[in-house]
Amino acid sequence: MNAIEIKEFHKSYGTVEAVRGVSLEVKRGELFGLIGPDGAGKTTLLRAICTLLLPDRGSILVDGLDTTREVARIRSILGYMPQRFSLYQDLSVEQNLRFFADLFQVPEKERERRLEQLYHFSRLAPFKKRLAGALSGGMKQKLALSCALIHTPAILVLDEPTYGVDPVSRQEFWDILRLIREEGASILVSTAYMDEADLCDRVALFFRGRIAGVGAPEALKDRYRYPLYRLEAKDVRRLRDFFRSLPEVQSTQLFGDALHVSFKRPPDSRQWSEWQAASSGNLTTWSPQPPSIEDVFLALIGGEADGGESI
């Protein structure tokens, strides 16, 4: 049995279709990433998994239990960390944790041990008495995570836990997630940072209420069809105009003083020297560039997001 199983999930708000038919499986013990920009429908999907929203169509099973019927049982095995910092800013770190322990009826005996454990890996022990509102962004997120973990859930759902957080704190946060996975929990985490995909076992690229691609990050990158090169030039803008006009070119993107160009077919050395000559020496260096998840994402949504966005 999978930790989470979603079949043809649909959800609309009025005339806006937030999620348009999503089927997905999160396996047991897996760290699964839901990657997509704001407004893709990530939060809607996660809320439905947490029994906070009902599907218009389709079904969601959490640990084999239907989210529309087994609300209480699902909530007891599920840990959820919402997008907005949803703790009590005027309570201390410890008071927040104990409040959630009460809420989930964590037995007295286990409680102290669990708290120690959470303090240990969140490294929040020195800040027990500090008010939650006075914590830094990264520490707040760790506290919110600890609260979601207080009842030792088998399945953990996190909605953009690292948004706007310092890269160091982000790295720490992902380290903690991996620790939790080692303990046997299944984790579903959403993020708008494309680069965080590399930290997951498997990811789903989510765009406009649909899944554009699912798989291990490396496998997704391997599927990228267009050979990508990083080019440097004396005048990079002129170089861009030049490459844009070539029929062999799939896309171009400026990166500061460099240019990324993806081709429909791998160019050979003869073509490179031709281009160098044609650009009258403007092109100075070129080297293959491994595609990022963002490149993969853009290629996968290519048809749908033609010309930016449609209205």
């Binding site: 407004g39 708008a192 997001a305 966005e309």
Partner: peptide
């Protein structure tokens, strides 16, 4: 908050 395409 915008998607990669819009960002680019």
């Amino acid at each position: 908050g915008v998607d990669p395409e819009a960002r680019r």
